[in-house]
Amino acid sequence: MNYRYSRRYAGPLEAVILDWAGTVIDFGCVAPAEAFTELFRREGVPLTVAQAREPMGTEKREHIRRVLRIPAVAAGWQQAKGAEATEADIDRLYHDFLPIQLETIRQRAQMIPGAVELIGRLRERGLKVGANTGYNREMIALCEAAARGQGYAPDVSLAAEDAPRGRPSADLALLNAVQLGVSCVQACVKVDDTVPGIEEGLNAGMWTVAVAVSGNEVGLAPDEWAALDAEAQQARRAAAVRRLSQAGAHYVIDSVADLEDCLGDIEARLAAGDQP
């Protein structure tokens, strides 16, 4: 035969799967960055905010491991401790990190402007709303409680330990899809502010939308962002868009409040036979 049958989903979107910090809550993804820099400060090891942000989106114990692999941080640890970091050090650091992270989450648990209204409009469109994160269950419980008080509760919310593997593997996004009861992964959109989170969605075969300004890549709290002049804002935005686009995101937006135009375009592409 000269032709091969190709099966393509051409129906409507069914679900949006949202990250938490930097995507719907905690503009600038500040809470984890503050927690990591404070953790290493207490160890006497220099850690810049940029270094703390490099592995953002990964499960937090793995995040610590990756930070310790950054050459400058590894050298700082060696100088401060007289030896390379061990698995026992990582275990201890993660134990010490937990209360610091919980406190910064409490301080930064404000919904991103426009997020609650956007999610309401998603539900009006008949879309299911899932959520997942690099936070553990105790951490995400704080976000969930704060979000409920501000008008947001996803249909399914998964913590890092709820799947066998964390980001950038597809496990969390696929488990979201299973628990949401969607018909296929092509009917899902994964929205995230980090490279591992976008890679998670791509590995799951979903459409991906990256959030640049409100998330980890720009990495500024609302007052810090507002204090920049237009030229400085555009420079920070452009760098974030470039990195997230290079990660493979199908779309890059400033914040989740801008998501709806992407959804309309995705549904038109699906109807035309495009796939993620």
Rank of each mutant, 00 (worst) to 15 (best):
N2Y: 13
R7N: 09
R7F: 14
R8A: 10
P12T: 11
L13W: 05
G22Y: 02
A31K: 05
P32D: 12
A33R: 05
E34L: 11
L39Y: 08
T48S: 15
T48Y: 03
V49K: 14
E54S: 07
T58R: 14
G76I: 02
A80L: 11
A80F: 13
E84K: 11
E87R: 07
D91A: 14
L98D: 04
Q101T: 11
L102W: 03
L102H: 13
G114I: 08
A115R: 07
V116Y: 12
I119T: 00
G120E: 09
G126A: 11
Y135H: 14
N136D: 14
R137D: 05
M139L: 09
A146M: 02
G149T: 10
G149W: 07
G151Q: 10
P154Q: 07
V156T: 10
P164D: 14
G166V: 02
P168M: 01
P168W: 00
D171Q: 05
L172M: 12
A173V: 05
L175K: 14
N176F: 03
A177T: 02
L180N: 01
V182M: 06
V182P: 04
S183N: 10
V185F: 06
C188E: 07
K190C: 01
V195A: 00
V195E: 06
G197W: 09
L202A: 03
T208I: 03
A212Y: 04
V213Q: 09
E217R: 10
D223S: 15
D229Q: 10
Q234L: 13
R242L: 12
Q246R: 11
A247D: 08
A247E: 01
I253Q: 09
V256P: 06
